[in-house]
Design a protein around this nucleic acid. Structure first.
Lengths: 229, 229
DNA sequence: TTACTTAGTGTAAAAATTACACACTATATT
DNA sequence: AATATAGTGTGTAATTTTTACACTAAGTAA
């Protein structure tokens, strides 16, 4: 959070890096600030942790207020508490990331007073960010890069039914490098957590690909054997 | 921190899991509380973050006050903020772990008022812990298990000069399983970050082993290629 | 000298990773 | 109907990494 500060000695907030995937690009949700400091700058959405909220609850609330979405995969990843990170006082913030499948921009809701607007911006072309938010974002990306190699988080960015090419695309965007198609498919299928459906992709002007679904049950069963991409 | 609470709405503290290795066992430093709540219980050392301290500084200070040690490897790993985790009010705490080479118990210093005493206790036989400290400890151990596979943190627990057997021992204790001697040596040497010394172990009643040193410079150079045990 | 204890070493089999190219299929276009 | 287009889907061989496994050497203590 970075809005108007109550006159407390220290404030504890949560800031969120909301990663969204629209089938093409990886984006994050940024808000344009309407308040000093950093008026007119882009910033990560955040807010103060309420007195009766758990940290996860607080993160979910922030997400909900901004997007109307619930039940999204979120995870805390780092606390930033440099005494000078906020020009107006001591603000310790805990960073969360979330992974969201974007289906058009219908998710955005009327936003709160300290922001002019909110936008999904592609991570390949981010503006300068307020406060230490660049650092927070960088660490968040680093975190999901690491996590995608060991945990089935890529599916959170995809619709329930997806093609292997789409899945590979997500991996490539997050890892920031091309992967070999055959090797990727071999490996991802070998984990045994994908369920091949009897359905094909629709609405494409070329050969339609087979759809798959992430098999949560099976993953839970095999959980001991952690995925390692 | 879990000591006397000032009457604030919310408190931000740091709790530390200090892992120590004495050549035999893996231990953590616990304090026996002298105050309610949880008087006479064992707890992780912790304290409130000061107004002008960064989080890392605060963690170092807590460590220093308890052990007199400086320059120890510490890392934050998770924030715990359940509204009910502290019976007397809202306390959000950030957990750090530290890795310390123990050379006798001479490190312990006179301790602060809220503790009767502090002790290094083997992790194989821990008492019940106050608050949610068991959870904090569990997550800390989990964290270093993960991290020891990719980062050269095992050396932090050993003296500057160590034998390969000692190193293997540290890995075995943290990972909680036996490793094959030949494979371990092959792999660890292949990373190229160990410097074999012209020196042998002393004071043992059997064949003395060769001493090694962790080559930080070389590690920094190879840093791109991350270690993967 | 003997007994004891840990150090130190190699190899073969199995598994995982990498590199690599083309035919197929569905649609759109003419 | 024929053709162009764009992405799907598939196999293999070479290389690298991982695993399993047991004995001799060196030093100390009795």
């Amino acid at each position: 959070m970075e809005q108007i500060l109550p006159h407390l000695d220290s404030v504890f907030s949560i800031d969120c890096v909301l990663f969204g995937f629209d089938g093409k690009e990886l984006k994050i949700l940024l808000i344009e600030r309407n308040e000093e400091p950093f008026k007119d700058w882009w910033a990560l959405p955040g807010n103060i942790v309420g007195p009766d909220e758990s940290l996860d609850q607080s993160a979910s609330r922030i997400l909900y207020e901004l997007t109307g979405l619930r039940g999204i995969y979120m995870e805390q990843y780092y606390a930033f508490g440099d005494p000078n990170r906020h020009p107006q006082g001591r603000v310790i913030t805990l960073a969360y990331y979330a992974l969201i499948r974007l289906g058009g921009d219908k998710e955005l809701r009327p936003i709160s007073n300290y922001a002019k607007r909110a936008n999904w911006l592609p991570i390949t072309d981010l503006p300068k960010l307020a406060f230490d938010h660049q650092k927070i974002y960088d660490k968040g990306l680093e975190k999901i890069k690491r996590r995608i190699k060991h945990q089935p988080i890529a599916f959170e960015l995809l619709p329930e039914k997806f093609t292997l090419t789409q899945l590979q695309h997500v991996y490539e965007l997050i890892l920031g490098k091309k992967l070999d198609k055959r090797n990727f498919r071999k490996k991802i299928v070998s984990f045994g957590v994908l369920k091949e459906l009897d359905e094909k992709q629709k609405g494409v002007s070329y050969r339609a690909a087979t759809l798959y679904r992430f098999d949560k049950r099976r993953y839970a069963k095999l959980f001991g054997k952690e995925i390692s991409f």
